[in-house]
Design a protein around this nucleic acid. Structure first.
Lengths: 136, 136
DNA sequence: TTAACCTGTAACTATAATAGTTACAACAGG
DNA sequence: CCTGTTGTAACTATTATAGTTACAGGTTAA
């Protein structure tokens, strides 16, 4: 299976965006909504914080969004987490003595980059606010 | 890491398309170019065959393409193999007592479907022939 | 100042995906 | 019948993922 970190990140950010009583937002509470372990949540929040998407303070309950939902693209979120660094893996060390083997890696990189760009564009077009709207 | 089956499938099909002496095309030979085990190649070829992309005969060396490279989209290849069945996993059993938890799965499915469609379109636009052209 | 509660993070573990490997049945052709 | 091939099952090794335990250190209030 592919990892679910992107989904968890969006879930966490949605919770923060929609919870008015910030002191309620502990890693434990969030873990209860996501249905995972508080440490998994704190780990993810660490990445989101490092990426400048949210604020937190050691020892104090509550997280805050740095960027308004309507200005926070899903692409920004995707980039903040450790998503798979590539869409498709390329087998390594194909035979350089073979015409196909010699060129296939570079060719596939080009092909996959085009695919990634299409995906990137779609992720850029959707914001956290769009997700919040769909949650109603 | 994400799996490399798509890359291997394209490599195999490229080899078949560019090798004129079909009797040279044994799973062992192909494995030598891809740099993997012959069984991995035969397994992949089994999928491609089942999808109607190539022909083979038990006991006889040589594989043949069913569809011309210019008519074979990368999307067809992608669909033929066991790629990750989804782009992003969705964490399961989020808390139904929570407004976000209750709706997040359905919402994410919609979001991811849009992303997948963008990717699909890009894969549809490229053919095996495009790959072969880039291999020169 | 101490107790309760929180975050941040390291380290370990369990599970599952991936791909490599061995083994062998069945088929083809000289 | 012998050699070489495909097709496939079964097993193994490696790695990614995420769950878990543990604990250092910050914060607040009694």
């Amino acid at each position: 299976m592919v990892n679910s970190r992107f989904s968890v990140a969006i879930h966490i950010l949605s919770l923060i965006a929609t919870t008015s009583d910030k002191s309620q937002l502990t890693s434990d509470y969030i873990a209860g909504s996501v249905n995972t372990n508080p440490v998994v949540v704190r780990r993810m929040i660490g990445k989101l914080k490092k990426a400048g998407l949210l604020t937190s303070q050691s020892g104090i309950a509550g997280y805050g969004l740095v960027i308004e939902p309507k200005d926070l693209s899903l692409l920004s979120i995707y980039r903040a987490i450790d998503g798979p660094e590539q869409l498709f893996a390329i087998h390594d060390e194909p035979n350089p003595a073979c015409a196909v083997g010699r060129q296939i890696q570079h060719t596939l990189e080009t092909v996959y980059l085009d695919v990634w760009h299409a995906m990137e564009k779609q992720l850029q077009a959707q914001t956290l606010q769009d997700v919040l709207d769909q949650l109603r």
